Amino acid sequence: MLDRIKACLPSLAPAEQRVAKLVLNDPRSFAKQPISELADRAHVSKPTVVRFCRSVGYDGLSDFKLKLAGSVSEGVPFIHRSVDADDKTSDIMVKVIDNTVAAFLKYRNDASTVAIEKAAITLVQAYEQGKRIEFFGVGNSGIVAQDAQHKFFRLGINTVAYSDGHMQVMGATLLGPGDCVVIISNSGRTRDLMDACDIARKNGATTIVITASGSPLAAAGHLHLAADHPEGFDRYSPMVSRLLHLMIIDILATCVALRIGGERLQPLLREMKNNLRSKRYT
């Protein structure tokens, strides 16, 4: 939300820019104070405060303050904070955790529930029709694909995950109408994944892509689940995108499980848990 305000700042009228700077300097206070006090602090009129809210894409002051309060709750940072070589352990811990939480909350505010619902319905239909469901990813995204396969396998859904480009091409070649492939990529520009996506589409399979908006892969899939995050690519920080992708997979798996229904899944999950008891020390 604050990134949007920064991006809009040059196009705002001078009086509205003063309101914008007031928000950016102290968003928590802005979310709590009445319009009269906000107008006084920004040296503008009350209608200008409302106009500012509408200029940056919100219905009015109430809508703006509600979204702002959600964005800045619990001490979440507003931008990605790079880890520096001389950071103390306490600094590193705070930055890594804050960057992750910020990305999660940004996704919560930006995500398209319509796209997620369509993806979940598509996966359930493929499962109920006995069609193939596969997960493709390379590098870090390959690990996410394996995690997705594990989560869906627990639900009794027969799936596979491929992180090798040759296996992805062969797997995509064997897909057909009604089958579904979920392709995961941070950049959305990996050649192997693009090739596999094209092959799967040509064979009639439904392609669900979890990747960055505006990327070639985002345009190539049938259903795009946007995974956008404001992190910088410094030398030290782990990629928040991996955790973001894992969360999206968790959301998908939960939606699919609820649509399959507890009556079918609960006995299976209980039996699985009982059978795994022997693998643990008492």
Score class of each variant (00 low, 15 high):
A220R: 13
A220S: 15
G221N: 06
G221H: 03
G221T: 10
H222P: 06
L223N: 10
L223E: 11
L223V: 15
L223F: 15
L223D: 07
H224V: 15
H224P: 09
L225D: 03
L225G: 02
L225R: 01
A226M: 06
A226K: 04
D228C: 09
H229E: 08
H229S: 09
H229C: 07
H229V: 09
P230A: 15
P230C: 13
P230K: 11
P230N: 15
G232R: 07
G232I: 13
F233Y: 11
D234C: 12
D234K: 08
R235D: 12
R235E: 13
Y236K: 08
Y236S: 08
Y236P: 00
S237E: 06
S237T: 14
P238N: 04
P238F: 08
P238K: 05
P238E: 03
M239V: 15
V240T: 14
S241M: 10
S241H: 06
S241K: 05
S241G: 10
R242K: 11
L243W: 05
L243Q: 10
L244W: 03
L244T: 07
L244Q: 01
H245F: 04
H245I: 03
H245N: 05
L246R: 04
M247T: 03
I248S: 00
I248C: 00
I249E: 04
I249K: 02
I249N: 01
I249L: 09
D250L: 06
D250N: 15
D250W: 08
A253H: 02
T254S: 15
T254F: 14
T254G: 12
C255M: 06
C255F: 01
C255D: 02
V256M: 00
V256A: 02
A257N: 01
A257S: 05
A257V: 03
A257C: 07
L258P: 02
R259K: 14
R259E: 04
R259A: 05
R259G: 04
I260G: 00
I260R: 00
I260Q: 00
I260E: 01
G261L: 02
G261T: 05
G262Y: 01
G262T: 03
E263P: 01
E263Y: 07
E263L: 06
R264H: 09
R264K: 15
L265H: 10
L265P: 09
Q266E: 09
Q266N: 10
Q266K: 10
Q266V: 10
P267E: 12
P267R: 14
